[in-house]
Computed example of a mutant assay.
Amino acid sequence: MKSPHFILTRVTPTSRASLELEYADGARFDVSLVDLIRSTPWMSALKDQAVFATVRIGEFGRTVEWPGHDDLELAADNLRAWGVEQAGDISHEFIWRWMDENDLSLDAAAAALGMSRRMLAYYRSGTKPVPRTVALACLGWVALKKQREPKLLPLAA
């Protein structure tokens, strides 16, 4: 992805297993990796503070990596999504998940939400922040869809 909002310009490790990140569009996030390190076996090397402190920006600013640990690499777009979500906002990944879980194309998703295809594409790509009202509309759409699904009665024995 060439979008400046997914290109890292600075990464600084903290002693609390988080990364202070800055992106080419000027956005800054403090992303905690504590839960990821605890729950993901291949990330266990990052429990060592000395290893964690070696983090650097990967090629073209699209990842962070830890030298000497080729299997330790995190994508800049995922880190941004985590940063947005950890700050209490809605990330572009929310739109991707909602569309995928409901098997919706961009056109169908835009129609379901009553918005233009272009605007939804901006939200899905991370170009524009996802408004809370859009996230709530997605959740409401799912709730209405469940209400409208036919109820199957159990077969009598």
Score class of each variant (00 low, 15 high):
80 R>I: 05
124 R>I: 07
107 D>C: 00
92 H>I: 05
152 L>Y: 06
84 V>I: 15
55 V>A: 07
28 R>M: 11
57 I>A: 02
59 E>P: 07
117 R>G: 00
140 G>R: 15
12 T>L: 11
41 P>R: 10
36 L>K: 11
136 L>C: 06
27 A>E: 14
95 I>N: 03
122 Y>K: 12
8 L>H: 06
107 D>M: 01
16 R>D: 07
40 T>Q: 09
23 Y>K: 10
53 A>N: 12
5 H>A: 09
19 L>M: 03
73 E>G: 05
145 K>T: 14
82 W>T: 00
79 L>Y: 11
34 V>F: 06
75 A>K: 10
113 L>H: 10
130 V>L: 07
137 A>W: 04
33 L>N: 05
56 R>A: 13
144 L>C: 11
113 L>P: 03
128 K>Y: 13
77 D>H: 15
38 R>Y: 00
44 S>L: 01
106 L>R: 09
78 N>F: 00
48 D>Q: 08
59 E>I: 10
108 A>C: 01
32 S>T: 12
63 T>Q: 12
3 S>H: 09
95 I>L: 07
8 L>G: 02
33 L>K: 05
72 L>E: 06
124 R>L: 08
73 E>V: 08
95 I>P: 03
15 S>K: 05
9 T>L: 02
66 W>M: 02
142 V>W: 02
30 D>E: 14
71 D>L: 04
111 A>P: 03
78 N>R: 10
91 S>N: 04
52 F>K: 02
13 P>Y: 08
95 I>S: 05
58 G>W: 09
127 T>N: 09
37 I>S: 01
26 G>I: 09
26 G>A: 15
44 S>V: 00
135 A>N: 05
147 Q>H: 00
81 A>T: 06
153 L>W: 11
46 L>W: 03
99 M>S: 08
5 H>P: 05
64 V>L: 03
123 Y>S: 07
133 T>N: 11
91 S>P: 03
10 R>V: 07
92 H>T: 09
85 E>I: 07
9 T>K: 05
130 V>P: 03
145 K>V: 00
138 C>E: 08
81 A>S: 13
60 F>I: 06
125 S>Y: 02
93 E>W: 07
1 M>T: 14
42 W>L: 12
62 R>Y: 10
24 A>K: 04
103 D>V: 01
39 S>W: 06
2 K>C: 10
136 L>R: 15
17 A>K: 13
29 F>R: 10
60 F>Q: 13
83 G>A: 06
53 A>Q: 13
63 T>H: 15
99 M>D: 06
148 R>S: 14
11 V>L: 04
135 A>F: 10
12 T>F: 04
136 L>V: 11
73 E>Q: 13
